[in-house]
Design a protein around this nucleic acid. Structure first.
Length: 205
DNA sequence: CGACCGATCGTCT
DNA sequence: GACGATCGGTCGA
């Protein structure tokens, strides 16, 4: 089932179906290495943002601004933007340069570096809120807006595959969180979760 | 330059 | 389940 972790290569990111990639990112391991300390967690919740035709995307209608510039970057770029003034949200860019496809990482199950995550978040103990929700996981792993535009082939932030695969029955598919203003696109089944995982954000589907 | 809003979170009920 | 904090980004004037 499990093997030595390998960094995902360009063949994973440069595909056209961002919804499929969002599904396949479940079970992969997001890693940051900062100050010689490795922090990592298994991805258990994702959302796809499908480019200029997706009303929930920052790139809807071809909009391209200072904030969303890195959404248009080459595959395996990190796109990090600030939400509600304080929360960095981490996205994986896919497809090809100038095609603004991204996958928002919404929750992790911690693996390495929990002590460092506690320091970064200021939490006294490692409860499920440590890496539940996109803002929380960014803080725990030390991801900030400064990371936006960086490559996921770097040694600072990257994604690994250790061979773990979730079965179809373990995966839940729902509409996305917090995108009510996207009208009909708010109903798209673009959110993927590991059923029953305590780190998945508990929200109404 | 000012007004508005948000891919959230924590707290309170 | 509801609500307010909080501030960067965006857009209009």
């Amino acid at each position: 089932m499990s093997r030595e972790p390998q960094k995902l290569d360009s063949g994973f990111y440069d595909r056209k179906d961002v919804v499929k990639i969002a599904r396949e990112l479940l079970g992969k391991i997001l890693v940051t290495r900062r100050d010689g300390i490795r922090c990592s967690g298994r991805i258990v919740e994702t959302e796809a943002y499908a480019g200029i035709n997706d009303r929930a995307s920052h790139a809807f209608g071809g909009r391209r601004t200072t904030r969303s510039e890195h959404l248009y970057g080459p595959p395996a770029t990190a796109y990090v933007y600030i939400c509600y003034g304080t929360h960095p949200l981490f996205n994986v860019i896919t497809n090809k340069k100038d095609v603004p496809h991204g996958v928002l990482i919404r929750a992790l199950e911690p693996i390495d570096g929990v002590d460092q995550m506690l320091i970064r978040t200021g939490k006294p103990i490692a409860d499920f809120t440590l890496t539940k929700g996109p803002g929380n996981l960014s803080r725990a792993l030390g991801i900030s807006k400064l990371d936006s535009g960086g490559s996921l082939f770097s040694d600072e932030i990257f994604i690994e595959d250790d061979g773990l695969r979730y079965k179809k029955i373990q995966v839940g598919i729902t509409k996305r969180i917090g995108v009510e203003s996207a009208r009909e696109d708010a109903e798209l089944p673009y959110r993927f979760i590991v059923k029953g995982n305590p780190y998945v954000s508990a929200r109404k589907s």
